[in-house]
Design a protein around this nucleic acid. Structure first.
Length: 351
DNA sequence: TATTCGTGGCT
DNA sequence: TAGCCAAGAAT
């Protein structure tokens, strides 16, 4: 364990490094608590590069808390489409409505109060409170845990969550808590990376007990599955199916209609893609029904609807559906702003 | 405490 | 290429 004087040195060295090496990220250019909140939710278990695009679109569409609170959930999901972990979007939306309805549209300013909002847990409450409001709360994410474990020379046998939280609080720079928290994460994301840490570039290397990789535990191995989906495009529209509202995975979102394996002739097979969702690796076969008659379209219990290709930006698509539609040239390259997203009159007898 | 929730880039 | 992994929260 570092001494009090060593922890003071650690803060000084880390913050000096952060002041000169911090990445220029969109959410670091604002002090708007709402904007910082949105960024923190998007960044949960999601890489910075993946967040940047979605963040810009989200803030353009929902620039302030009241705009998000008054939006429809399906429109929030459409902007979130492709980012994954869609529960985050639903809870962010609900939390905005709660702040608007119960708190007069004013965000809570302490970690403790933020913690009561849907989707805000131990990490996010501390991150928002420290970055947006200057509260001396230690934010402990995966980066911070890894940095602390290496600095202390701990492995998974002696680094409990409680111990890491307590240690993070002891390390925290109470004068610049927001910067310190971000600096710890920045260090973990760019220098103290999981595999092959760049110790020679590390600003706190002299204080680190490990100076290299540390032991990590076993990972659960992935399952593999083969699935088939139907693609049908007619007169600028594509046929999509809605996942059940009570599905555990991506409820209510739109995807290509499912096919029983072997239900479609091989002659219609136009594409094969690999797609991993949580613990399963999918091999996805896509069958083109565009030229087939209505009677040949897959029979399914799912709700199905024809969508204009030009308006697919406004639809809450699954990432897999988006990927396949892009590969088949059925996804708009420029953002469309069509008012009418669906055309129920062209349902063509499909259940 | 252990699972479940997406996706894409990297090695 | 087949994993590995990311600014976690809810249940």
């Amino acid at each position: 364990m570092l001494s009090i004087a060593q922890r003071r040195d650690f803060r000084q060295m880390l913050l000096a490094w952060f002041d000169t090496h911090a990445r220029d990220l969109p959410w670091r250019r604002t002090r708007d608590p709402y904007a910082i909140w949105v960024s923190e939710i998007m960044l949960q278990q999601t890489r910075v590069v993946a967040v940047i695009e979605h963040y810009a679109r989200f803030m353009q569409r929902f620039p302030a808390l009241d705009a998000l609170a008054s939006a429809r959930e399906e429109d929030v999901l459409a902007v979130w489409s492709g980012l994954g972990y869609y529960r985050r979007a639903r809870m962010l939306h609900r939390a905005a409505q709660k702040v608007q309805a119960e708190l007069g549209g004013v965000m809570p300013k302490t970690a403790e109060e933020l913690r009561d909002l849907p989707g805000i847990g131990a990490y996010t409450s501390a991150a928002v409170a420290s970055i947006a409001f200057g509260e001396a709360a230690a934010a402990v994410d995966g980066n911070v845990e890894r940095v602390l474990m290496r600095v202390q020379g701990w492995d998974e046998s002696n680094a409990s969550a409680t111990r890491l939280r307590e240690t993070a609080a002891e390390f925290l720079d109470a004068a610049r808590p927001g910067d310190f928290n971000q600096a710890m994460m920045e260090l973990g994301a760019t220098i103290c990376v999981p595999r092959g840490p760049l110790c020679l570039q590390c600003p706190v290397q002299p204080l680190c007990a490990t100076r290299g990789e540390h032991l990590t535990g076993e990972r659960k191995k992935m399952q593999s599955r083969t699935v088939s989906h139907a693609f049908a495009r007619r007169r600028g529209r594509v046929l999509l199916a809605q996942r059940p509202k009570d599905a555990s995975l991506m409820p209510g979102m739109w995807e290509l209609p499912s096919l029983e394996s072997g239900a479609a002739p091989q002659s219609l097979r136009v594409l094969e893609v690999k797609h991993a969702i949580t613990v399963t690796n999918y091999t996805v076969g896509v069958y083109d029904f565009s030229a087939a008659g209505d009677e040949a379209l897959p029979k399914t219990e799912q709700v199905m609807r024809w969508f204009a290709v030009s308006a697919l930006h406004e639809v809450a698509l699954t990432g897999l559906a988006r990927k396949v539609l892009k590969k088949l040239g059925a996804f708009p390259k420029i953002a469309a702003h069509a008012k009418s997203v669906t055309d129920t009159d062209s349902n063509m007898g499909v259940r």
